[in-house]
Amino acid sequence: MGTRSTPLPGVGTQYDFTTEAGQHISVVVHHDGRRFLGFYRADDPDTCQASVPLTPEEATSLAHLIDPMPLEAIRTDGLDLVTEHIPVSSHSPYTGRLLGDTRARTRTGASIVAVLRRTSAHPSPGPDFRLAAGDTLVAVGTREGVDALAEIIAGG
């Protein structure tokens, strides 16, 4: 059992994984954030039985389902803090607007500590950072604060 990565020039990277049962699974990560899951025959590792294309958002959702130990809460000095990934959809009222327009910390007490964008991460974004559809906000705060922030970003 192990993972092998192979650079695909002009495309991205292919990650191959073989389960203990001998099933060969491949994930191709394109430079633009798209992913493809491939399932291969055990007796012929070059024959793809099925391929499933995933958007970055779908890949994130699938990863959260598979991860057996998600980071749900961090305990600091007796305070319960949570870290959440909040997607910015094309329907969000903040798509195309500045992060400062959300007034996230003032309204919820939660902090946006990073913005993940397709193939790059933007740690500690300032109020002049412009949000885009497909971004994922990394927020830290109380459960109530982070949930309130998710509602705001979704337009609720």
Rank of each mutant, 00 (worst) to 15 (best):
E57V: 01
R35N: 02
P53Y: 03
Q23I: 09
I25H: 12
T108N: 10
H122E: 04
L116F: 08
A121Y: 02
D32R: 01
S51F: 00
L131Q: 08
R107D: 07
T83I: 15
E84W: 11
P68M: 11
G12N: 10
H64A: 15
I74Y: 12
V140C: 08
P87K: 04
R105A: 09
S26C: 08
V146W: 08
S90A: 14
G96Q: 06
H91K: 14
T6P: 02
D43L: 00
V113I: 15
R117F: 07
E84I: 02
F129A: 09
G100Q: 04
R130M: 14
R35K: 13
G78D: 13
R97W: 05
L81R: 13
T18L: 07
D135I: 03
L99A: 02
R118G: 03
P9H: 11
P53A: 02
D16V: 01
D80Y: 05
L71I: 13
I25N: 08
T142N: 08
L81C: 03
L149E: 10
P93K: 09
R35E: 02
R97M: 12
T108Q: 07
R35S: 06
D77I: 03
V146R: 06
R117E: 04
R130S: 13
L8E: 15
R34Y: 03
G155W: 09
T55H: 00
R117C: 06
E84Q: 15
H85I: 05
G141M: 07
L79S: 13
P56N: 00
T3S: 07
R75Y: 13
G10A: 11
H85A: 12
D80S: 15
E151H: 13
L98V: 01
L54H: 01
E58G: 03
I25W: 15
V28K: 07
D32N: 13
A42G: 00
H24A: 07
A110I: 14
R103D: 10
I86A: 09
Q49T: 00
V52C: 00
S120F: 06
G78C: 14
I74N: 08
E151Y: 03
R41A: 05
V82W: 14
Q14R: 15
L81T: 06
